[in-house]
Design a protein around this nucleic acid. Structure first.
Length: 492
RNA sequence: GCACCGGUGGCGAAGUGGCUAACGCGCUGGUCUGCAAAACCAGUAUUCGCGGGUUCAAUUCCCGCCCGGUGCUCCA
C-alpha cells in the first residue's frame, strides 16, 4: 500500500518512500527542555509516533532523529534564576519528557541528539556558510545568515519577502544586521553569560542551526521527511532550509510534515485562559494515559483538535470497549465451523484500517474500521458462531491496529501511580483529584480483603453488607465487577 | 489589518456533487444480575454555521457574511 501524505513544501499529497530504498530517514524537532511538556506538545510527538509506527507496519525501517534543545534563551534565563549552570538545569526536564513519552507509549526515536553535544558540528556549518558569504559577523561578535543569498527563502511557508522593507521592525539588539530578516546563527555572549569558546568567538548557537547540523550529521542531505508543529514552519523550518541548502547545495528535506495545534475546551490553550495542561496535570486528575493518547491521535494531524474533558472520558470508554473485545475474542470458545461473513468483515476492517492511514494518516477513518469489526465480532460471539480461524484473524487485525495506536495493553494504573509518586516528591499532591488521592496508601491487599469479605457476605445473602462494601470501595475509586469467573476489581 | 484553515446529531469527529451522512462517547430500551456494575444487542441528524449563486442535483463547487483557530513576533 502506497502511503500518501500531505507535503507542506509542495502543498500537495504525495507518495512517501525511502529514497535510499532502505531506511526512511526522518527528523523531528524535539522539545526545549525548560519545563514540563503540555498536551499540545504531545499531540505533535504522538502524531509523529503514529506516522513512524505506520511506516514500520508497512515494512519501512525508520531512522528517526530527534533533537533535544538544551540551550536557548529561556533555559539560560531560568537556569540563571535558579542559580545553576544550564547543564544542571535541563536534565530533570529532559528526563521528565522521556517519562511522559513512555507514559503515552511513544516509541523512542533511533537517535536522540542534544544541542550542547553538537556545538562543533554547528560551528563547522556556520564556517561553511561564511566561506560562501552566506553568513557574516556583526560588531558585537554575533553571526547572522544573509537571506539575500538564498533566493528560495519563503518556499516552505509560502511567503513572499520581496516587498519587505529592511529596517521596518528592527530589534534593538540586532541593530547591525544587514537586513531585518537575517537571523542569528551564533549569538555572542554578553558578559557573564553562558558561552562556548569557538573559532567563531565566544557565544552560543542560534536556535535554528542545531537542527540543520544534527539532521545532516546523522541523516545526510535530502532526508525523506522533516516533522514538527505547525508553528515551526516559519521561521524555524524556513531557516533550517536556508542554512542547510546554502551549505550543501542540495535539497535538505524532501517532505515536510506539520501537525496542527489543538484547542482546549474550544479555546487556545494558554496559562492565562486557565486551560493549560501538562500530561502530569491530567494524570493527577485521574485521566488514563491511554485515553490521553487515543484522544490526541484520533483526530487527523492536519485537523484542529478540540481537547475536552468530556472527550477524554469518551475515549476512556472506547478503550475499555476495545480491550474487552480483545479479551472476549481471546477467551471465546470456537465454534466447529468458520463464519465466512465474519471473515469477510475482518478482511474489510484490515483493508479499511490500512487504507485509512495510508490516506494522509487519516486515523479517524482507520479506527472507525476497527470499531466496525468490534461490533461484528461481538455479535458473532453472542451468537456462538466464531470459528478458530475467525479468532486468529481478528486477533491479527487487532495486533496491527495496536502496532500503530498502542492503547490495548493496560499500564494505566502504573502511570497514575507514577504521577502520584512524582507529585509527592515535588510537594504537589494538592494538585491531585480526591479520587486519585484516595487510592494512595490503599493497597491491593487491603482492597482484596474487602472484596473477599463482600463475596462471603453475598454467599450468606447478606446483601446489605455486600452493598456497603461495594459503596466503600467505590468511594475510594475502586470498581467491582461480578462475573461468572469470579469477582474482578479495578482502580478507576 | 493581510494571508491561510475550519464550522457536520447532546459532545468529539469522518466523509461525499446524486446510494440509508461513518465511527466513538452519551442517552433510551432490551439481555444478564439478589440489586448493581461490567459486557453485549437495538434505537437515536428528513440533515451538514447563515444568506445568495452555479447545476437536472450541493453538506460537498463559487461569492458574501458571522463565528472559532493559526501565521505575519518566542511557541508543538
Amino acid at each position: 500500500m502506497t502511503i500518501r501524505l500531505f507535503n507542506t513544501l509542495s502543498g500537495k499529497i504525495e507518495d512517501l518512500a525511502a529514497s535510499d530504498g532502505q531506511s526512511f530517514r526522518m527528523y523531528a524537532c524535539g522539545p526545549t527542555v525548560y519545563d514540563y511538556g503540555h498536551i499540545g506538545n504531545f499531540r505533535t510527538f504522538l502524531q509523529v509516533d503514529v506516522l513512524r509506527r505506520f511506516l514500520k507496519l508497512q515494512g519501512l525501517t525508520p531512522r528517526h532523529v530527534m533533537n533535544i534543545t538544551d540551550v536557548d534563551d529561556k533555559i539560560i534565563r531560568n537556569a540563571a534564576a535558579a542559580g545553576v549552570d544550564i547543564g544542571q538545569y535541563t536534565p530533570r526536564f529532559e528526563k521528565a519528557f522521556f517519562e511522559d513519552l513512555d507514559a503515552l507509549n511513544v516509541e523512542k526515536p533511533e537517535i536522540v541528539a542534544r544541542a550542547t553535544e553538537h556545538i562543533p558540528s554547528m560551528v563547522g556549518l556556520i564556517e561553511k556558510l561564511a566561506e560562501q558569504d552566506c553568513a557574516y559577523k556583526t560588531e558585537d561578535g554575533s553571526w547572522y545568515f544573509r537571506i539575500a543569498k538564498f533566493p528560495g527563502y519563503g518556499k516552505l511557508s509560502k511567503k513572499d519577502f520581496t516587498g519587505i522593507t529592511d529596517g521596518a521592525r528592527v530589534d534593538v539588539d540586532e541593530y547591525d544586521k544587514d537586513s531585518a530578516r537575517d537571523f542569528a546563527l551564533w549569538k555572542a555572549a554578553k558578559p557573564g553569560e553562558y558561552r562556548w569558546e569557538t573559532a567563531l568567538g565566544a557565544g552560543r548557537p542560534g536556535w535554528h542551526i542545531e537542527c540543520s547540523a544534527m539532521a545532516t550529521e546523522y541523516l545526510g542531505s535530502g532526508i525523506d521527511l522533516h516533522a514538527g508543529g505547525e508553528d515551526l514552519m516559519f521561521p524555524h523550518h524556513e531557516n533550517e532550509i536556508a542554512q542547510s541548502e546554502s551549505a550543501s547545495h542540495q535539497c535538505f528535506a524532501r517532505h515536510w510534515f506539520h501537525v496542527r495545534f489543538l484547542l482546549v475546551e474550544g479555546k487556545k490553550m494558554s496559562k492565562s485562559e486557565g486551560n493549560f495542561y501538562t500530561l502530569r496535570d491530567l494524570l493527577l486528575k485521574g485521566y488514563k494515559a491511554s485515553a490521553i493518547r487515543l484522544l490526541l491521535i484520533s483526530v487527523p494531524y492536519r485537523q484542529q483538535l478540540n481537547f475536552t474533558f468530556e472527550g477524554l472520558a469518551a475515549e476512556t470508554g472506547a478503550i475499555d470497549r476495545l480491550r474487552n473485545f480483545q479479551q472476549r475474542v481471546r477467551s471465546a470458545s470456537a465454534a466447529a465451523t468458520e463464519n465466512s461473513s465474519l471473515a469477510d468483515e475482518t478482511a474489510k476492517c484490515e483493508k479499511n484500517f490500512i487504507e485509512g492511514l495510508a490516506n494522509d494518516l487519516n486515523s479517524a477513518e482507520a479506527r472507525a474500521a476497527v470499531f466496525d469489526l468490534v461490533r461484528a465480532g461481538n455479535a458473532a460471539i453472542d451468537a456462538g458462531t466464531l470459528g478458530a480461524e475467525n479468532v486468529a484473524q481478528i486477533l491479527g487485525v487487532l495486533q496491527q491496529f495496536d502496532h500503530v495506536f498502542g492503547v490495548l495493553e493496560d499500564h494505566d494504573a502504573e502511570w497514575t501511580k507514577f504521577a502520584l509518586e512524582w507529585a509527592e516528591r515535588e510537594g504537589r499532591l494538592n494538585e491531585a483529584s480526591p479520587e486519585v488521592l484516595a487510592q494512595r496508601g490503599f493497597s491491593d491487599e487491603q482492597i482484596q480483603k474487602l472484596v473477599d469479605e463482600r463475596t462471603q457476605a453475598k454467599k450468606t445473602r447478606n446483601f446489605a453488607r455486600a452493598d456497603a462494601i461495594r459503596k466503600e470501595l467505590a468511594e475510594k475509586g475502586v470498581l467491582i465487577e461480578d462475573s461468572k469467573d469470579g469477582v474482578r476489581w479495578k482502580r478507576k
